[in-house]
């Protein structure tokens, strides 16, 4: 526990001094703003480009605010997650590859505290980024497309947060088992896609599948997700996160021999 806090402080300093604490939230805010803004100005953009043939009638249905927020989630699910993976792929693998980890590994280091401190810091920054992104998106959606109840948006964000924590645990395990950052990113990306793909293809009745969490989050906007499905999926996600903690700490310890001496 003591080691957890000293290592967390180190992670915090790292994230401040390499400016991740600024640019990752900035990207999410940008994603949140961009989606409603481009949608709002889309008719004007098409018109000004003069691309429409004579006589054609332009009919773009105005999206509902709920659809707009769903589109923002879509952006986070693709570009947002990609940014997080690229930002944190080297968290453990990179330290080992460069040899900076060596001077920690020769000490009586608790690898559980080591892994958890890294997951905690990466998760805090990811969650803050996702929340700020959603809030920015919510604000512009409200300006351009109308109101959604704030409580619904908060429920959506809360549910989506569990998904983010799960993805970060997955990413850090990938970093713990990989020989370098690129490899870690590849493992994390492919696992991430695989989860969504299997859930999409075969998971119609898998109500407890953590892959459904983003979808459950969106269902808050138009009513409420099926309660047993939601809590089942969250429960399984939490169990998987705990399992990933164990695997990550174990892999980090096992791979300490691979650090550059």
């Amino acid at each position: 526990m003591k080691q957890f806090f000293m290592l967390l402080k180190k992670e915090q300093l790292e994230n401040i001094r390499n400016y991740k604490i600024y640019w990752i939230p900035a990207i999410f805010i940008l994603l949140g703003i961009l989606e409603p803004t481009t949608n709002y100005f889309l008719p004007q953009i098409i018109e000004s480009s003069g691309g429409l043939p004579e006589g054609a009638v332009l009919e773009i249905p105005t999206p509902t605010p709920e659809q707009m927020l769903a589109a923002i989630v879509e952006q986070f699910q693709t570009i947002g997650i990609a940014v997080l993976i690229l930002a944190y792929m080297g968290t453990i693998a990179g330290e080992r590859k460069s040899g900076t980890a060596t001077l920690l590994y020769v000490r009586p280091l608790s690898f559980r505290a080591y892994f958890l401190s890294k997951w905690t810091m990466a998760s805090v920054i990811s969650l803050v980024s996702v929340w700020l992104g959603f809030l920015a998106g919510y604000y512009y959606t409200y300006l351009f497309f109308g109101e959604v109840e704030l409580i619904k948006v908060l429920q959506m964000m809360g549910t989506y947060s569990v998904w983010v924590l799960f993805i970060m645990a997955l990413l850090l395990v990938a970093s713990a088992i990989s020989p370098n950052s690129g490899f870690a990113a590849a493992i994390a990306f492919s696992t991430y896609l695989l989860i969504q793909l299997t859930d999409g293809l075969f998971g119609l009745n898998w109500t407890f599948s953590p892959g459904k969490i983003p979808q459950y989050g969106l269902e808050w906007l138009i009513g409420a997700p099926d309660s047993s499905g939601l809590w089942g999926a969250i429960g399984i996600a939490v169990l998987l996160i705990l399992l990933l903690f164990a695997i990550g700490s174990w892999a980090a310890q096992r791979n300490k021999a691979k650090t550059k001496v």
């Binding site: 040899g99 001077l103 009586p108």
Partner: peptide
């Protein structure tokens, strides 16, 4: 020896001692 370039000397030795 490889060090975290963004830490100061005293921050690093302090972390090392504490671990």
């Amino acid at each position: 020896p490889q060090f975290f370039p963004w830490l100061t000397a005293v921050e690093f030795t302090e972390l090392a001692a504490k671990i």
